[in-house]
């Protein structure tokens, strides 16, 4: 974490020179937010009150954090909602986003689960052009990705795919060749593996 130089012992002794001497060019102080950019997944446990989604969205916009996906739903507690946000940024920037979220009075808990063992899923509905000639191919692909066909028409079908963002991306990539007429994705939802619970802290 230390970006700056250590003071050599000889200068440390009450030096009277104006700028710690005998030091060649001091190393530049690093600024937060200039590291490697990764995709991060945050889970926010918030009060189920009007305007909470607006507060979260407004804060992310005002502080220039880019939300890639955002999924909001109730939890088992009627007064509590759960948000899953995915955003891109370096570790410091995302940590800053989480800290800013904590400043909201209606936010109870924020956790960056990017490197935790989790189950991560999203659902996608993909309307693909498919007729008698190539329907079989589409069905095979869907099957390989454990996707379901939930609607069938003469010239198109709807594939319902669930999986991680990467898996859904891959299937979409393969289906694109047939012609995608319509696409909707729910955004990622995530839950940590094992017995621990993010919501535990708010269950009083």
């Amino acid at each position: 974490m230390s970006p700056n130089g250590q003071m050599p012992a000889d200068q440390a002794a009450n030096s009277a020179a104006p700028q710690a001497p005998a030091h060649t060019a001091p190393p530049a102080r690093t600024m937060p937010g200039h590291g490697e950019v990764h995709r991060h997944v945050l889970v926010a446990i918030v009060l189920n009150k009007p305007g909470v989604l607006n507060r979260v969205a407004s804060l992310m916009r005002a502080r220039s954090f880019n939300i890639e996906t955002l999924a909001v739903s109730h939890t088992d507690l009627p007064e509590v909602s759960r948000m899953t946000l995915t955003l891109r940024g370096d570790d410091v920037a995302v940590e800053q986003a989480a800290k800013q979220l904590y400043r909201l009075i209606d936010v109870l808990k924020v956790q960056d689960v990017t490197s935790d063992p989790t189950v991560e899923h999203e659902i996608a509905l993909i309307k693909v052009r498919a007729d008698d000639r190539n329907r079989g191919e589409v069905l095979t692909l869907a099957e390989m990705y454990k996707a379901k066909v939930v609607d069938l028409a003469a010239e198109s079908l709807i594939v319902e795919a669930t999986g991680t963002e990467a898996e859904v991306d891959a299937l979409i990539g393969l289906l694109r060749g047939f012609g995608i007429k319509e696409l909707v994705r729910s955004g990622t939802v995530v839950m940590s593996r094992g017995a621990g619970s993010i919501e535990e802290a708010v269950k009083r």
């Binding site: 974490m1 690093t30 600024m31 937060p32 410091v92 800053q96 800290k99 800013q100 904590y102 400043r103």
Partner: peptide
Amino acid sequence: DPAEIGKNVAVE
């Protein structure tokens, strides 16, 4: 305010 820590300047 925890959000002020490391916001503008990295600290030790």
